[in-house]
Each structure stands twice: as C-alpha cells, then as structure tokens.
Nucleic acid binder design. Sequence first.
DNA 1: CACCCGCGTACACGAATATC
DNA 2: GATATTCGTGTACGCGGGTG
Length: 319
Amino acid sequence: MANISSLDLNLLRVLDALLREGSTVGAGRRLALSQPAVSAALGRLRHALGDPLFVRQGQGLVPTSYATSLEGPLRAALEELESVLAGPEKFDPAEAQLDFHISGTDFFASMLMPELGARVQHAAPGLRLQLVDLVPDHHVEALERQDVDLALLPERDFPAWTAHARLFRAEFTVIARTGHPALTAAGLAPGEMIPMELFCSLGHVLCSPDGRFHGLGDDALTRAGRSRRVMMSVPVFEGVLQVVAATDLIALFPSGLAERRSPSAGIALYAPPMAIPPVQLSMIWHRRRSRDPAHTWLRGMVQEILTPLGQRNDLSVLG
DNA sequence: CACCCGCGTACACGAATATC
DNA sequence: GATATTCGTGTACGCGGGTG
C-alpha cells in the first residue's frame, strides 16, 4: 500500500512530529515549519501511504490505528538513522571528560559500582559515574528524557526506541541472622533447605522500592499453595540486610548479593523450600546511543562485571 | 448565540534545482 | 541562460468544534 518512492525523509520527520504533537500547529513549531506547510506535508503523506493517518476531532488530530502502529518503529528508525549519520566519534577513555548516569537499585550499588569504579578510575579518570535509584517504572521515562544513560532492571517489554542486553539471571536464597533461634532449634545449618512449614511460620522482610508487601516470593508460594507473613517492607536491599541481621525476620534475597555480604553482615544463607524462578536482569538504553563509542564502552564494562553473576554455580538455591 | 481556535485549501510569490 | 518544477512561505478564507 505504501508507495515508498514518493516518500522523502522530511515527510517522515513531519509524521513523527505529528504523532508527537497531535496537531499541525504543534508539529510545525517542532519542525520550524508553518502550519500550512505541515498540512501540505500531511497531504503528501496521506497520498504516499494510502491512509488518512489523522482525522480531525475537535481542536486536534487523532491518529488512525495505522498511524499509531507506526509511531514506535518510526521513531526508532529515525533515531537509529540519526546516530548512523552522526558517525562514529572517537572515544579515548584516558582523555574523556564525561558523566554517566545509571539507574538501578542499590543491588547495583553493591554488585556493580565498586568494580566499575575501580576500572574507571584506572582506565578513564575523567569519567564521573552516578547511580540513581528511581521509583520502578520511571527508569524507561528517564531514558526517554535522557536524564539517564543506562537503566539496569528486570527484563520486560521495552519500547521500540530502546535497545537492551541481558546481563545475568538473578537467583534467590533465604537469608537469616547467624544463630537464628528458630532455625538453630530446627537443627538447620547454613546452606540447608528450610522446611516449608517453618519458612511460612517465620516473619519476612522484603525489598520493595515502592512499599509493597508482596514480592516474587509470594508468587512462588502461591503456586505451591502456601503463603507467608511479610512483616516489613524496606526500599533498599542494604536495609533488608540490616533488618535481617538485627531481628528474627528472614528474607528472600538475591544470591549474589547475599554471598558477597554474608561474611560482614552477620547473616547466613539457606535454601528456600520452593522453586523461585530466576529474574532476568538487563540493561536498557536509548537506541540513539547504540553506536555512541563512549556508551558502548560503558556497556562493555557493565556487561563484563555483571555477566559473571549469572554464571556462578550457587549451592544455596538448590531445591 | 457569538466568539475563538485550529484544520484545510487556494493563491501568489520566491528560492533552489532540474531540464532543455 | 532560459524555462519548468518543486517546495517552502505568508495571507486570506471557509468550516466545524469547543466555550462562555
């Protein structure tokens, strides 16, 4: 249907602007064109694509379903093109003066930033790194606004204008304070599986940045036909560690972080009584940065540091 | 109802480019 | 170099939907 021979790139930019603004006046402002020029371009688009694209509704234009379906892929394609045309700039880590903004939970403050900091300090002393912990679901928006260069989060359906790469699958273990009375009384040594009955009878603390009492452990228990008592929710993983170390509450906790922190945090690791599906952690960024040499360099560093977390064979999560 | 706003069109004009 | 084409601009105007 679409007649690509009568399309030029500027028409696609007009279409993108119209989809963003929902108005020829707004699109004109965005493109530095007059309203009649945008209207004429829209006419050419309609002819070339064989679709009305927008219909008037009150004081504005409403996209047809065809136009709506183009929005994400079109924007992604234009941004990709933009980065292609920008060409590969040179990036010299030793000389670069740059700030990188990464969003992710405090899990990454522990598991990524120390190693990343050590590497950057050595290889790229002019770089500054900022890790911000955003309310969940705001990571993608922050990428779009370009407040953040890279977001670290569980994989889900990401918008078409983003690109992502898998980092590792996070496994979960149970943590409790060393010498936990109920676990000791049950004759359990660290590394052993906590029986379901006992696991469900103990109080739990979980990490939830937005303050929920329901976590993936509850989903796993529901599948097993059981439930637990979540008595506390804390917004950061480090807080969960502190609470577990100071109380008789137990927690489901990322294995890698638990292993790293257990020697100094006064906690012991146990196996949960039910299977908990691992969570795929990914890094996601704006497509326009895909070819950016500095960004590529940073992604390489993050990938190198975090990928091994998924490769370690972890005895504490068997069962 | 009058009024405002925004879309769409018509028209004249100019600049850039293609064609002869 | 003259001419035609394309594409943009500004102005003007009709239409229709919101708003007070």
